[in-house]
Design a protein around this nucleic acid. Structure first.
Length: 678
DNA sequence: TAGAAATTTAG
DNA sequence: TAAATTTCT
């Protein structure tokens, strides 16, 4: 090795060569070895789902090919511990520097911090960058330097920052390769034979890889963007950007997206195109929500599994596997919901609006624990993204200060006519309802017998009756909320009284409750039985049933039959030749307890360690720098804020506007006072 | 100038 | 919590 050793550029969810600050810096520093480490066990419960792994595989191949054109290649490593694998590669290649881009999910925060500590101690110079966000989470705060806790304020601030997001970087012209032979690649296996068959169709609708991401961006900006404000409400239209999977894997830089959209916005504004200008605002807002999801994750590293508002801990979730299954299968009896769930299952994709519909139905009508729904999204979505999905589900569940009203139940029938006025979407995904006239398509249960008969619909046989009436759901929700406030107050009273910790304590044990335990928690279940109120409620913080990889794999048997289906407009169709019973059968098997036990990374311990080490190093004040050298860590004060936030204790909690939107029963006041006097 | 009542919005 | 845009009597 001549002069200084080479640099490792550690690729993660930044699978692009354009506007990649870590890569650019590595190239500037001399010779480069590019590495991707596949260590899914580190993700714990969030082992990537089948379609997500498919995407990753394609994207890595694409990146490797780009790197080869530039003079090096992508070294891939299979690992169960990224940091020690990094060390091995560093030793093998004689590297002296490490470059990578920041991630903000809780596991990465811990892991990357640890990587920095360990490698720095070994004499490696570690440099890290912002490649995923317009602004780093710690750059955006209110006048008092505190993090925002509502999206609107956050986004407003982002749009009026004293400095613009950094301009996108060009790809390197050439890369001087480090000694890549000294650390040969492992062959990464992202899918088994069964999955391969199921995945084959995906390639006809999607093209992973950063160049394709760039094409998708250009196509969207030159096409649907200008009409985005008008069209984004239609469930079936191809007017969304379809960028989310690209963004998730960092194939395209948000900064580039932002700049290009802004340029067009100015253009249209000058032309007096008000709709076009507004479309840009709305689209950028959705980019802003993605930013906010990282912001939230950074400031509240538990937000993917714990409600941000403490009292939601007391919501008596309906723990009912039958409900859960009916939802997954698209057999709730509400056509819009069912169409969405079938689309998700068949294609790994769901229009944004429909995500809201199905998740809102899940939480408010079925009252299933939101984390289950989030986990299912994680397992099935092509663009599964921990931070974004956590934000979405928390928003829907009303567990954010600016989330939806707790007692609001949206009626899928009305939403159906709003988002799918002609019923095309429903007919496409629910062939059994295809012949139903539009007036009944979103509420077949009201249709006259003759109409149903003529359409070949037999409710309860062919297509289910509503799993629960909306009115009944409303009543049940009111009752549940009343109970929630009672329990919250009781717990608060108990704590103030010093008698016991109460249910509301934020002890780690209740937070980390995860699948394996739940196998016992959930009573054995019968096959889906419609119109039966579930009575099994739980107050513990919700737990997630094991539906991960085993679930996906079993289900594949019938999904593979979509291979026989034609693809229309580049998007997959629902399998029409598959009987529902068959589907039910394989799904049933899917929920069997998983036998492939994955090594669990203990999040609680991980976080604790990080906090400890941060306490020492935080005085170095490394966080404020804009780029280079800083691994994002959250300071103890940030974590403390999170605690306060959840506990509502120290004045930060919910504001008056929240309480106004979520009125509590009067008794609460009395509950509070009683024990204090005692 | 017809009606009713106020405000904004859907992640 | 449904439905659409704006402001009064």
């Amino acid at each position: 090795m001549t002069g200084g050793g080479c640099s490792i550029v550690w690729f993660r969810r930044d699978l692009r060569v354009e506007d990649n600050p870590a890569l650019a810096a590595g190239v500037r520093a001399g010779s480069v070895v590019a590495v991707f480490i596949w260590a899914p066990e580190e993700e714990g419960h969030f082992y990537p789902g089948r379609v997500s792994r498919w995407w990753l595989k394609q994207s890595l191949a694409h990146l490797d090919s780009s790197l080869r054109n530039l003079g090096t290649c992508l070294i891939t490593k299979r690992s169960i511990d990224s940091v020690s694998t990094l060390l091995e590669v560093i030793k093998a290649t004689g590297a002296t520097q490490l470059f990578f881009n920041h991630l903000y999910d809780p596991l990465s925060l811990v892991r990357d911090h640890r990587a920095k500590e360990i490698l720095t101690a070994q004499g490696i110079a570690v440099h890290s960058f912002n490649a995923d966000l317009l602004y780093e989470p710690w750059e955006v705060s209110d006048e008092r330097g505190q993090p925002f806790h509502t999206f609107a304020a956050f986004w407003e601030r982002c749009l009026s920052m004293p400095f613009d997001p950094e301009a996108p970087l060009l790809p390197p012209k050439r890369i001087i390769s480090g000694d890549v032979l000294s650390s040969p690649s492992d062959t990464l296996i992202f899918e088994n034979e069964l999955e391969k068959g199921s995945n084959a169709l995906l390639a006809r609708a999607w093209s992973p890889g950063w160049r394709n991401a760039d094409k998708a961006l250009t196509a969207f900006i030159n096409g649907p963007l200008i009409e985005y404000a008008k069209n984004r409400r239609k469930a079936d239209s191809a007017t969304t950007s379809f960028l989310s999977p690209h963004l998730h894997f960092g194939e395209v830089s948000v900064r580039k997206v932002f700049h290009l959209v802004r340029i067009n916005q100015v253009l249209w504004a000058n032309e007096g195109n008000k709709a076009g200008e507004e479309s840009c605002n709305l689209f950028l807002k959705s980019i802003g929500l993605r930013e906010y999801s990282r912001y939230l994750s950074f400031n509240h590293p538990y937000s993917h599994e714990r409600p941000l508002l403490g009292h939601l801990k007391f919501f008596p979730w309906v723990v009912d596997e039958g409900y859960f299954k009916a939802w997954r299968q698209g057999r709730t009896g509400y056509p819009l919901v069912d169409a969405g769930m079938r689309e998700l299952w068949a294609t790994g994709w769901l229009h944004d609006r429909i995500r809201v519909v199905v998740s809102s139905f899940f939480v408010k009508v079925l009252q299933l624990p939101w984390r289950w729904g989030m986990k299912y999204f994680w397992d099935t979505l092509l663009d599964a993204d921990l931070e974004s999905d956590a934000l979405g589900w928390q928003y829907i569940s009303g567990t954010l200060p600016d989330g939806r009203e707790l007692d609001r139940i949206d009626n899928p029938q009305f939403e159906g006519y709003k988002f799918d006025p002609n019923g095309e979407y429903v007919r496409r995904w629910l062939p059994e309802l295809a012949r139903l006239p539009t007036v009944w398509i979103h509420h077949p249960w009201d249709a006259p017998e003759s109409v149903l008969h003529a359409a070949g619909v037999e409710l309860g046989t062919n297509y289910p009756l509503p799993i629960i009436e909306i009115d009944a759901a409303k009543a049940r929700l009111q009752e549940a909320l009343w109970q929630m406030w009672q329990h919250e107050a009781a717990s608060r009273a108990a704590i103030e009284n010093g008698t016991e910790e109460g249910l509301g304590d934020s002890s780690e044990s209740s937070l980390i409750a995860f699948p394996q335990d739940l196998q016992m928690e959930i009573a054995d279940h019968d096959p889906v039985r419609n119109n039966q109120a579930a009575t099994h409620r739980r107050y513990e913080d919700q737990m997630v049933p094991s539906i991960t990889s085993s679930f996906i794999r079993f289900g594949d048997e019938e999904t593979s039959s979509d291979l026989q289906n034609p693809v229309e407009h580049g998007r997959a169709e629902v399998p029409r030749n598959v009987s529902v019973n068959q589907e039910t059968e394989s799904l049933n098997r899917g929920v069997q307890p998983s036998t492939n036990v994955q090594p669990q990374l203990n999040l609680a311990i991980g976080l604790q360690n990080a906090e400890e080490s941060t306490a020492e190093s935080s005085s170095s004040g490394s966080m404020g720098e804009r780029s280079g050298g800083v691994v994002p860590v959250w300071s103890p004060s940030n974590t403390a804020f999170s605690e306060q936030f959840v506990g509502e204790e120290n004045g930060i909690g919910v504001g008056p506007s929240y309480l106004q939107r979520h009125p509590q029963p009067q008794q609460l006041v009395n509950w509070r006072r009683l024990p204090q006097t005692g």
